[in-house]
Design a protein around this nucleic acid. Structure first.
Length: 214
DNA sequence: AGAGTGATCATG
DNA sequence: ATGATCACTCTC
């Protein structure tokens, strides 16, 4: 870790074993770290969505669905759930709560802090490197995964005690700087579509599509 | 606003 | 088997 971000103790299992709304808030402002070879890629988490499991119509585990694809949601809090979608994109979730409670937090955006050159290379399969602005590196869930070199290989990884992929423990964002909004792309989810389970750092430039007003 | 892309899931 | 859907992104 770059010393500029301080000596960062690893987050414990206890940190992740809570409900996904609480975890989503606690993740905002913390550092997502991906060690690629000798290079550290680091981003500050600025947007997260909570998926509440069995009752949540927008969750992959809605109705208790348990398949090969979403198996990682059933792991203990602090594991990675990575899924592949639209035939080309990967998205990274942090599993919340306990074993058998299939809830998770989708990392929707990061503010890139370290290793921007490598992130740019990772992302340049889509956009020419010289056209990529820093806000194109992590302003969306599939961008985050691509910039950090995360795909199905990381599905099910334990983020606790792992130096290749983990969340580092700086202070989280105070509630007064967090804005909530309905989740993105879940219009099919009936009453669940309207619930404010999207959490963003207020005014941050790296928040993904349609930044919330308040 | 539409295309791209393939795993997944509900049907039959 | 077949077809619709999809926690998305890019370009027009």
């Amino acid at each position: 870790m770059c010393r500029m971000h301080g000596a960062l103790g690893p987050l414990t299992r206890r940190f992740y074993r809570r409900d996904p709304e609480s975890l989503a808030r606690a993740l905002l402002g913390r550092l997502l770290v991906r060690r690629c070879g000798k290079e550290d890629l680091v981003g500050r988490i600025v947007e997260v969505e909570a998926y509440l499991g069995e009752p949540d119509r927008a969750a992959h585990s809605y109705g208790g669905r348990h398949t090969d694809r979403n198996h990682a949601m059933y792991l203990d809090g602090g594991h990675a759930y990575v899924y592949f979608t639209y035939g080309m994109h990967h998205c990274l979730n942090v599993v919340s709560d306990r074993v058998g409670v299939p809830t998770a937090c989708l990392i929707r955006a990061i503010e890139p802090l370290e290793g921007l050159d490598v992130m740019r290379v990772h992302r340049s399969t889509k956009i020419a490197a010289d056209r990529l602005r820093d806000t194109d590196l992590g302003s969306g869930p599939a961008k985050v995964a691509q910039a950090l070199g995360v795909d199905l290989q990381q599905n099910g990884w334990d983020l606790v005690g792992n130096d290749q992929l983990f969340v580092a423990g700086t202070r989280s964002t105070p509630d007064r700087r967090i804005v909530t909004a309905p989740r993105v792309g879940v219009g099919y989810a009936g009453a669940w579509a309207g619930r404010r389970l999207r959490f963003c750092v207020a005014g941050n430039r790296h928040v993904s599509v349609r930044p919330p007003d308040r």
